[in-house]
Amino acid sequence: MTDLAFSKDAMKEYEWMLTRYPNKEAALLPTLRIAEREFENLDPAAMKYVADLMGLSPAKVLGVVTFYTHYRREGTGTYHLQVCSTLSCALRGSEDVCAHLSAKLGVGLGETTDDGLFTLSKVECLASCDTAPMLQCNDDYHEGLTLEDVDHLIDRLREEAKAGGAA
């Protein structure tokens, strides 16, 4: 049923990764990172692929994936907006950033816009407390945010998506 497979480059990276650890299992977290990139998110088929590739049970892979919060899961929008909400950010207005995004995008926390572009989440401390309030969008940190910055970011991402290149 699944015809997923790593590209040649990804397979090379995977094989190199295996040489860095004394056993295969230790390469699971990095391999999931490769899978996340190759398949866009870790849906059940992607997890099954990794399990088969590494000779692990799908249950083991699911158990690991669900322990962590930072893997891209099924249904995540093109842009995952993760607003840091822990104390240092909360003291400097992260609630306003969340509320503003929620109103602007018309979604609640953990929800994805109908066009599949944005998922909005609150996350715990991202080690950027000196630039509060801040958010992570996919790989990038956006720091020292004002509500205008947030507007600009969303506009820019919408344009980027229209032009066909999500970062």
């Binding site: 860095r20 650890y21 299992e25 230790a26 390469a27 699971l28 977290l29 990095p30 999931l32 990172r33 158990g63 690991v64 322990f67 962590y68 919060t69 930072h70 893997y71 996350v123 715990e124 401390c125």
Partner: peptide, 27 residues
């Protein structure tokens, strides 16, 4: 030296949690 990425879990800063996570387990 190998750089190993975690995946989001405060408890993986606790040293034994970190080692368990490095072994490819729930941390």
């Amino acid at each position: 030296v190998t750089v190993h990425r975690g995946a989001g879990a405060y408890i993986c800063g606790e040293e034994t949690g970190m080692l368990t996570s490095l072994e490819g387990e729930r941390g």
